[in-house]
Design a binder for these strands. Structure first.
Lengths: 250, 250
DNA sequence: CGTATGTCGTACGCTTCCGTACTGAAAAAG
DNA sequence: CTTTTTCAGTACGGAAGCGTACGACATACG
């Protein structure tokens, strides 16, 4: 009934291989050898609200293994249409194209919820991937998980109603957060979902009246996660379960 | 003004590295060494209309390098919502998860426009990928191209109108065809776009009146490609250009 | 050749969501 | 404390597309 803290969140998995001081699931899953390959090049960084991680059509300078916070990956076209195609938190890493052997960012990536992480220079990461099949395998599975998320976003965008999509987004953000409070304005939620700001306001209102969330100016708090899960239905869950499977078999 | 045949289609690139008797761009781009790695395991197959290539949650048996025809990759959830997240033709290969080190299909993949190709057993392909960095690099870039296509589909699903999305779909299919005739019913187009069948009928009607296509029962012929491109605007083009870039630098 | 089936054209009321815009309230800036 | 800015609530007309459904044709099949 609560959904409090991190206990019942699918993505949280404090398994045995957890590395001390590291929350990022990928870093935590590295073999000692792979860890020693990356560790010297990792730089701890704090990530401000709206901080740009990647810009479209520009080279990717660093990959960020997030510890805290949520990054948005937003597709943009030449006519300035934009929509979020995926989110990344402590379960993953930014710079998916690097893993695919490309060094150019296709999308705009920036911190939606501020936090921190460890970054590594793009060429260092690529070199490490070349050297270590096990590292490559892990990162490829993470990239595959992200692809599945993007495909599901396409499904939700084409088939779901605004409320369902908003519930899905809140759940995905909640999975990646340490608190239940989402520090975001309706405006930003609207940009990510590709809908009207006023539409988000109304939907949040409905959630609030049903007791799923409480709100303050610029902040929304999840108080009934199962309620949101019921709204999102099967638009939420599949990518999360698949990521579990992918990272579970590494 | 015509868009006739294959001359002005972005994806068609009869470059020097073209292998005799092979239309598939990936196979055509293989180094002699990589070709000799795969060739013994390739099996020429003809692909019927609606033939299933992959089923959700099932192991992937073969990867298909298409020569002729178009395959649809369709995301499905537990509540039977479904929508196409990408198409594959002679420019690519099915079984993207195999390239990512996963052997399970996430989506439903089937021939939308019948044709032919060369297939290879999943484990053979994976073994070859392990052995050859150059093959791996090529296939990863192809997978990256597919990811970009999926992300753009998410953008179109969230932002574009029915007519824009239909024009985009027709252009993507046209890119991958040897004729201008698309042998598909409105019903199937509707399923792929995730819209009403009647909505497709009306949109096609409008295209017909504007002289972009002609229609027969169960078939639609593109007669003014630039017209469709104008309708699709920037919802079409970016993934195609990016694929060119990705495959051009291999 | 007649019938079943698939395909298309069309229509109607309805839902969802958009575009726009104004207002009050909260927070930040001065 | 006052001013300015940002954010949230609300409203209205309208567009897009849905669910449903019915009839008219083609085409395939018996």
């Amino acid at each position: 009934m609560s959904g409090n803290l991190t206990l019942d969140r699918p993505l949280v998995n404090m398994d045995a291989s957890h590395r001390a001081g590291i929350r990022n699931r990928l870093l935590g899953k590295l073999s000692p050898k792979d860890w020693s390959l990356l560790q010297p090049h990792l730089e701890a960084v704090s990530l401000r609200e709206r901080q740009v991680i990647e810009a479209p059509q520009k080279p990717i300078a660093h990959a960020y293994f997030l510890e805290i916070g949520v990054a948005s990956v937003v597709a943009v076209d030449n006519e300035d249409h934009r929509i979020e195609v995926g989110v990344i938190g402590y379960e993953g890493v930014t710079g998916v194209p690097l893993i695919m052997g490309d060094n150019r960012a296709q999308h705009s990536t920036y911190m939606q919820i501020p936090g921190s992480g460890h970054r590594i220079a793009a060429d260092r990461l690529c070199a490490a991937i070349e050297d270590s099949p096990s590292l490559r395998s892990l990162l490829l599975k993470s990239a595959q998980g992200f692809m599945i998320q993007t495909a599901h976003t396409a499904l939700a965008n084409g088939r779901a109603k605004l409320e369902e999509r908003l519930a899905r987004w809140l759940l995905m953000a909640h999975d990646r957060m340490t608190s239940n409070a989402v520090p975001l304005t309706h405006e930003f939620l609207a940009v990510m979902l590709g809908v009207r700001r006023a539409g988000v306001t109304v939907a949040i209102h409905s959630f609030e009246q049903r007791g799923f969330v409480t709100t303050r100016r610029g902040e929304l708090t999840v108080v009934n996660r199962p309620g949101l899960e019921r709204v999102a239905g099967s638009f939420y869950g599949t990518p999360e379960a698949e990521l579990e499977r992918l990272l579970g078999t590494v």
